[in-house]
Design a protein around this nucleic acid. Structure first.
Lengths: 213, 213
DNA sequence: CGATGCATGTAATTCGTTACATGATTCG
DNA sequence: CGAATCATGTAACGAATTACATGCATCG
């Protein structure tokens, strides 16, 4: 539940209207926390009701009219509180990895173009980040915020590098049919293999479970 | 919307009961697609109603009794269809990155222990994956499924390596206060800076878009 | 004054999370 | 028998996604 905090951060960096926030969530902030305008308006309403932000009074407020929000002391306090909260790293949930794994049971047909497409997208995003780094972050960082933003951008760069590298490895390793043999290699049973990989638990080597063996 | 497909994959690899699936989703499959038993039971019900899977007939079915599911032809067909579907890479949504960015506006106090904790967790996960790789995947891969599982595991390894590397960089760069100066460096305005970083859009510099990739 | 784009919202649905409920099995 | 454990579920809620609705501003 971090969307309200993402909004507080964005507003502390610069007071904005709902649509401006939406635009900013398509750029820098959105590079690691995305949100649609519907989510944003809903949260803005909630945060205002709770007294964490307020709409800067306008001369003639009206429905379809621009409304700029700023963070109130309660909002800043909430963000400081939340900043130090502990929370477990979430397991990734990536459909592409799932599609790859599906290839293990129903074949790889049709997957390769999608892998290539993603590789291109990640390459482009990586190039964009590197361009930003070159342009916006010169070596001697002189503000706390500058250092932090640079570290976050480094995260984006390294994350995209990971994708580019891994997708390259997959594309190199996937279409390579077995050098001379067939699909079903001798002596290996599919179901057993699945069992094997599933049961190979990482740190549980000491406990010897007698029931399943 | 990939949970049903994750379940189809798991069941094709090995027919299982709901609880067995839950356990398997804590291991290999869960390393890139997590699910709780409540989600799993709900989906199993839905998939069965839709004729994609069936419960293997038991001698005496009863409520609290083990029920094993297997995939029906319709389910396999659906998985084959879904496997080739195009879909955009999702933007990451990571609270830790958000907390780091929050440090840019409300200070870094209290964040460092959390960063260290995550670093340790990712180091442990990386070690576990590397152990699995060493144990389960010898160089000459002889089945399609073996190759695929290995590539997926490589993804896990490289992803965890990314975290370890990046968190190391953050911990090295974060607490380093400005060598001799103060928080607010001369000549830099916070609001302008935020604006600057936000407006630095990636793909819009058509003028001199030097091809870096 | 009507069309277009900008800006702010509502509604419906689906997916994920948390808490709880109940039946079966095993073991002392 | 009763407690602990395994196994299968229900219910309620919150967050995210998708589709739709409405009001203002400008320009011809």
């Amino acid at each position: 539940m971090s969307l309200p905090h993402a909004i507080l951060i964005a507003l502390l960096e610069k007071s904005s209207s709902g649509l401006e926030l939406t635009r900013r969530f398509d750029k820098s902030i959105g590079y690691f926390w995305s949100a649609t305008h519907q989510q944003i308006y809903r949260e803005l309403g909630r945060l205002e009701r709770e007294g964490q932000i307020r709409a800067i009074p306008a001369p003639q407020p009206a429905r379809g009219k621009r409304k700029e929000y700023e963070v109130l002391p309660a909002g800043r306090a909430e963000l400081i509180r939340w900043k130090a909260v502990q929370d477990e790293p979430k397991r990734p949930r990536d459909p592409l990895l799932l599609r790859l794994r599906a290839s293990g049971v129903v074949g790889t047909e049709g997957l390769e173009p999608e892998l290539r497409r993603h590789l291109d997208l990640h390459r482009a995003q990586l190039a964009a980040y590197q361009e930003m780094e070159k342009r916006d972050f010169a070596p001697p960082e002189d503000t706390e915020r500058g250092r932090v933003h640079h570290l976050v951008l480094r995260g984006g760069i390294m994350m995209e590098s990971f994708w580019v590298e891994w997708l390259g490895e997959v594309l190199a390793g996937l279409p390579g049919q077995p050098p001379a043999g067939d699909e079903a290699a001798p002596g290996v049973d599919y179901a057993d293999y699945a069992d094997y990989a599933d049961e190979a638990a990482p740190g549980e080597g000491e406990a010897d479970r007698t029931d399943t063996g």
